[in-house]
Design a binder for these strands. Structure first.
Lengths: 158, 158
DNA sequence: ATTAATTGCTCAGTATACTGACGAATATCA
DNA sequence: TGATATTCGTCAGTATACTGAGCAATTAAT
């Protein structure tokens, strides 16, 4: 490896982008056949745990941008994994609930998702894995407000 | 925080996606005014270090997909930060070189890029920062082949 | 109660990223 | 050499993600 190139390779930003690429590829490989992306998985899992959330609350739970969630839930609805209903109290909102097909998919895909998380961390020792997740949680939590889609705990509906 | 939601929040895949969002936001904030993305920065830096690389070799250096690099260098060319010339030996290739404007941009933007990397790791202790980068390098290196754009060391032109 | 501010969702525009396919050029092999 | 295989760049299609704008509905202020 050229010494110059290290300037790029050891930059945290570059490493994080690479790890995200890899994490995505591993997920798509493990869950091949389910036709679901990581973001779609996060969204449908959150909808199951919070039946009747509106889209903005869902954004705050899974940290997806407001202008992105529309597409995501649209795809989930098209695949009949969730339902979208206009809110009764607040007619601006669209309330989200999981379907039977969605529940089945979540149950069926779970082993593959677990396997993905394992494969990502496989190169590390058991101690390192714990340490890494702790540091990632710290970074994400403390830098939370720096993303346009910050996590907002305890503000969700339901 | 609901206990159920932890199922999502402590998944490495989710944390990695969040950290990438944050890393991107911090970069765009610090380099505001330069009109350059992290990927564009990586590409132009690699082109400076490897004058005359072709696009495929560049992919292998910065780990960007072959079908993505065309857009990226297209934008850099439009902004006159790099030049693209058809290869003489192999007329399929397009050889990339940096312009004076590109060199100036790299020099000017450097402090902001350094600041970005600092801000990403700011919540960690000095020891933890070193540890994290080492683990990220290990993960990326050993999982390298799992991405469509694996890093290929020593295969670049120039 | 009417105005003003805020919120929920959407849309247009741009950028990154992957799959799969293709034409053109090059390399390999029989 | 001629047929085959591979490689380089590109394109179409899909998905995530951000900015900034806008409309409709709701809430707050006067």
């Amino acid at each position: 490896m050229r010494d110059d190139d290290r300037r790029l390779y050891e930059k945290p930003g570059h490493l994080i982008r690479r790890l995200q690429q890899i994490s995505l590829a591993l997920f798509m490989d493990e869950t091949k056949g389910f036709d679901v992306t990581p973001v779609q998985y996060s969204a449908i899992l959150a909808i199951r745990l919070h039946p009747g959330v509106d889209q903005t609350a869902l954004c705050n739970i899974v940290a997806i941008d407001r202008s992105t969630i529309g597409d995501v839930v649209g795809r989930l609805e098209r695949k009949k994994l969730i339902r979208r209903m206009p809110g009764a109290q607040d007619r601006r909102t669209k309330l989200l609930t999981i379907t039977a097909a969605g529940r089945k998919l979540l149950d069926d895909i779970e082993p593959a998702v677990q396997a993905t998380q394992k494969r990502i961390l496989e190169p590390l020792t058991v101690k390192e894995r714990k340490l890494l997740v702790e540091m990632l949680e710290k970074l994400v939590h403390l830098n939370n407000e720096h993303s346009r889609a910050p996590l907002r705990i305890g503000e969700e509906a339901g």
